[in-house]
Nucleic acid binder design. Structure first.
Lengths: 205, 205
DNA sequence: TTCTGTGAACCGCTTCACAGCG
DNA sequence: CGCTGTGAAGCGGTTCACAGAA
């Protein structure tokens, strides 16, 4: 089910649908249509139906999609029907903001460890989590079998951190540093690039 | 020059090239090739050449591209060869982290005002910036002619903030709230969606 | 010779349009 | 009758391959 040659761009829209479905659900709706789901996701209805059809027929012809059922199926497909333990590397302002933001845990991404290489920070707490030395990072991540990490260290340190994470067995990295990370093919990296997004928009101003 | 029907996807790669060029420049390089620029940006050499050719011939056949010259031209195209004043709405953890992060100013995005609707926060300082009541937001933004804003308020408040920003004359919004914002066609919105990025990656694990 | 700039071929995603099921 | 699921058509971005400039 996981990989039947589904276009990556289709997979990237599933989280959007999921977000919109939760939004509709919070409004008390139980049924939706490709029309409604599309409008609220800014995606055409035909696109929505095509995307979902890659994974099977989730709708009922004539009536539409059951919101709870469709949400559950998409969560299964994306493997977010479970808890993911996450390691956070970098305890600067951004690291703090992320560690204290409840939104990740609400979606099943539980930050379990915070690492930093600054001796002055080791042992200090962020909420209930102690800041741990990066010296122990590889060992802990491997031991705990953690597969997902976030990087919020300065750019110059990001590649070296990524290398260590790969060595520790991390399989998915969310990178907040404004650099392109080099990792083996079987490791997923997504970069959060607000500056590039701003630069993209100014073109049109 | 700004809009000669350049595909949006091409524009979205220019900031990546710019980032890589700065990286190459910091390494002391002065000349590069579509090959090298592409490898470090994880984009094919043909794609790099094709993208740049939309805007004119910036390279020298046989030798390659002058890094300083190409950087300057891309900055012109993206209109990041100037200072952009930015309004930040929301002074929670994330707002604080953004306001204190020097990276935006380094790229020409200067955060000039921070707004929040929490009376307890009004008047407190973030660095050198006072937190200002959202009651004054529309007036100040309009008066100062600010065109770029960032939203870091909770999801439930984001659409209402966006509406006010549009009313105030904002033309580009960088949205950190996990919701799809509805704005008029002539306003640009980009959403920072780390959670969707994580959900995208877990599909492949 | 090297590497850019670019028409043309290719490929893959999007949109269309309708059959078919509830 | 309404809305999904889907083959087929359409379209746009990517890759190819080479002419041509330095």
């Amino acid at each position: 089910m996981t990989d039947k040659n589904i276009p990556d761009i289709v997979v990237s829209r599933l989280p959007i649908y999921l977000q919109t479905l939760q939004h509709l659900s919070r409004q008390g709706k139980t049924i939706t249509s490709s029309q409604e789901l599309g409008e609220q996701s800014f995606i055409t209805a035909a696109q929505v139906r095509k995307d979902l059809s890659f994974f099977g027929g989730f709708g009922k012809q004539g009536s539409g999609y059951d919101i709870n059922y469709l949400s559950a199926r998409i969560r299964q497909i994306l493997k977010v029907d479970r808890i993911w333990n996450v390691a956070l590397v970098g305890s600067g302002d951004l690291g703090h903001a992320i560690a204290r933001y409840p939104g990740f845990a609400e979606r099943g991404f539980h930050i379990r460890y915070v690492f930093d290489n600054d001796p002055a920070k080791i042992g200090k707490m962020i909420g209930t989590l102690p800041i741990i030395s990066t010296d122990k990072m590889v060992e802990i991540i491997r031991q705990e079998g953690i597969m997902v990490a976030m990087i919020t260290v300065p750019s110059r340190a990001a590649q070296s951190v990524a290398d260590q994470l790969v060595q520790a067995g991390i399989k998915a990295i969310l990178n907040y540093a404004p650099v392109a990370l080099n990792v083996p093919e079987n490791i997923r990296v997504e970069t959060v690039s607000p500056i590039l997004q701003l630069e993209h928009m100014t073109y049109y101003l």
